[in-house]
Design a protein around this nucleic acid. Structure first.
Lengths: 175, 175
DNA sequence: CTCTTGTCATTCGAATTTGCACCAAACCAT
DNA sequence: ATGGTTTGGTGCAAATTCGAATGACAAGAG
């Protein structure tokens, strides 16, 4: 089938022991942390992590509003997925939809008063989880290194085209 | 609470700038990376990341086999979720179910020959993605620090009971 | 042995996510 | 202006995930 990602065995640069350990620990920690965050939010406010991230992102914006597509891009979620979740939040009165003044097609997701209160009520518990299982386990230097690592990775992926990895490798041009 | 320091009602210890930046970069990187990994696996072998992780975990075991519950625990997935995915992999001939010799109730998920070949065929591309967007962007020191960070976080979560976070916080006793 | 309790895996229903198709609106080169 | 192309948001079907309920077996007390 599609072999565009396949690299001949001889060229494969496998992960060494440290790299493999780092990757496996990252995967495990990510799964565990996602579960903890999800559990806390569910128990504390009935929100999912995806919904919390929507509220949090909106609250960072002036006027607590953002275009649907822009919001989806920032949250790294599909547009249809965002449509669904905004519907859920709207049903709970935490978000409202408003017409975009500059583009007739556009829709603004707007954080409501109640959405703001819900976020303020929920945030402390959320932060507590992030601290308890991650941040407070690290030295300030480790926190800073994690920031650098994750920023680099994010930049690499935002820069690279969505397509096949080949585009990133030298000596090949898209057919 | 004590307001003489102009601290809000809750005694929440918020994230400082570095911590917040680290957390937000982590969340963004994780979403982006998951998407990249998913895309590569789908295009290259028709596997999801969850399915790849099952095959990889089984391949690390002697005999390429593991009890369902044990596998679910290691992959940090619900048992019912694993049942579903093993069904999918079995349908493709990459995994077989076998009776557990020591426990009549038990079921062993067993990696097949074809499952092994599929994994060997898919692994290079997977590693290439992990390298391209994460590992190769880091210095060896950063890789090592990431390993430490993620190992600490994993240990913290595996040690802590699944229940409310309150149990972890000082000055409060359950009930 | 028998009863009670706990564990293992599955099934079922509900919730969520994605890609694709679709329609309306905006953009653009004639 | 105008026909063609692109963009923005939503509807829909398929896939995946989880929790609760279920049935079979195991383990321990009497």
């Amino acid at each position: 089938m599609n072999k565009q990602y396949n690299i001949p065995v001889s060229d494969t640069k496998w992960l060494n022991e440290s790299e493999m350990a780092a990757w496996m620990a990252y995967v495990a920690a990510t799964h565990l942390l996602e579960r903890r965050v999800e559990d806390q939010l569910k128990a504390d406010s009935g929100l999912t992590h995806a919904q919390y991230e929507i509220l949090a992102k909106l609250s960072q914006q002036p006027g607590g509003r953002l275009r649907m597509t822009e919001l989806a891009n920032r949250l790294i979620v599909s547009k249809s997925g965002l449509t669904y979740q905004i519907g859920q939040l709207e049903r709970r009165g935490l978000v409202t939809r408003a017409a975009c003044p500059s583009d007739e097609r556009g829709v603004l997701a707007v954080l409501t008063e109640e959405g703001t209160r819900c976020l303020e009520r929920t945030a402390p518990g959320h932060v507590a989880v992030v601290r308890a299982f991650l941040i407070d386990r690290l030295t300030p230097e480790e926190v800073e290194t994690m920031r650098q690592i994750m920023t680099k990775a994010t930049a690499a992926m935002e820069a690279a085209p969505a397509g096949p990895l080949r585009a990133l490798r030298p000596g090949k041009s898209p057919g």
